[in-house]
Design a protein around this nucleic acid. Structure first.
Lengths: 200, 200
DNA sequence: GTCTATACAAAGATAGAC
DNA sequence: GTCTATCTTTGTATAGAC
């Protein structure tokens, strides 16, 4: 787990079209999943032929990897930021940040969406999803540990188990919310999570 | 929410081949998702042509609906059973049952998998997933309420909020576990969940 | 460097053989 | 009632035009 905090995915600067393709692909994966979207979905919107997309991203898996890398980077920064914050509510900040980041209606966490079809993905992409999850759960354990060290609150159970619960609940909440299209699905779960943590 | 407990999906008796198709489709949806599997995946195993599957299930959506209905029925019965049980550990039974039901490595909850690609599904199938989730969360609120009524334990927060947290955590746990292929992902979350509920 | 025309395979579904 | 042969559309990818 060494150097987990600083693992990064530096990205080459990209053309404007490439960024638009990434935007659309990200949205499509989050709403429909990776297998259910095609280059046509993207080319239709951009007004080029399907093959035009292949120039920017030769294979679909490459496109998927690029989307994940771009998605992952600011997320990791936000977590590091929260961990460094010395104020008294880092855990709440963390949950809020997480919820907000995936706050677009109909979207789940990008990596949550991909995790749902892991066996259908090529290894390269699978690894990215795996890494995203591992990193996040590491942070979710690390942040409360630091808060405890600062005397912010006490921890009853194991930090890593609690971290896993929080992470799973957030990922699951995004999925459940989608079926009912009911925003309270998300807010209820977050409030339950907070009150559980407060008493821990 | 009336009659939620008894909503049922009666099923016509089916040929042996049809049952085999359902078995395979269920497995494929749980591992790869609905969009990522095709009739060919099934016909290859069964040793018939793709069109042979279409005889048993004319459209892919029909197959999906049949899979969900078959999956849903015993699940609902198990929940009703647990709710009726007068022993002292219904909540634990519930969680155990839930975990066990989806205990096959690499599989997530069937409806969790489908929820991940809701916008890519036809309405008929979407409704089934929606109903599964609604029913389950109803039970997850109802079961602790009954336990409280029997003096099994006290409830600090709202029952329905807690129910939503439990449900989301279990769904999320199944997804997260898959990426890491680490069984402790599931057991850690369940144990964290139980200890949270015990203190509630 | 950017895109179009085209190829090739796989998808879902129909019509008809047994 | 059960399955095969076949059709059409869509999906991914290559080769080549501008």
């Amino acid at each position: 787990m060494k150097n987990m905090a600083t693992s990064n995915f530096k990205q080459a600067p990209r053309s404007e079209t490439a960024e638009k393709i990434l935007d659309l692909a990200e949205m499509l994966i989050q709403t429909r999943g990776c297998s259910a979207f095609s280059y046509k979905d993207i080319s239709d919107v951009l007004g080029v032929r399907k093959a035009g997309i292949h120039y920017h991203f030769e294979f679909k898996t490459d496109l998927g990897v690029a989307v994940v890398d771009r998605y992952t980077e600011p997320f990791g920064k936000a977590l590091a930021n929260i961990a460094g914050n010395k104020s008294s509510s880092s855990m709440a900040m963390l949950i809020a940040r997480y919820a907000e980041f995936a706050d677009t209606p109909d979207r789940v966490c990008l990596c949550g969406a991909l995790a749902g079809e892991i066996p259908a993905l090529l290894l390269k992409l699978r690894d990215r999803v795996d890494r995203f999850f591992t990193t996040h759960q590491w942070w979710l354990a690390e942040i409360p540990k630091r808060a405890v060290a600062r005397g912010e609150f006490k921890l009853s159970g194991s930090a890593s188990k609690t971290a896993r619960l929080v992470f799973a609940a957030l990922q699951g909440a995004l999925v459940v919310r989608r079926t009912t299209a009911d925003a309270s699905q998300m807010t209820d779960i977050i409030s339950a999570l907070k009150s559980q943590l407060a008493s821990a």
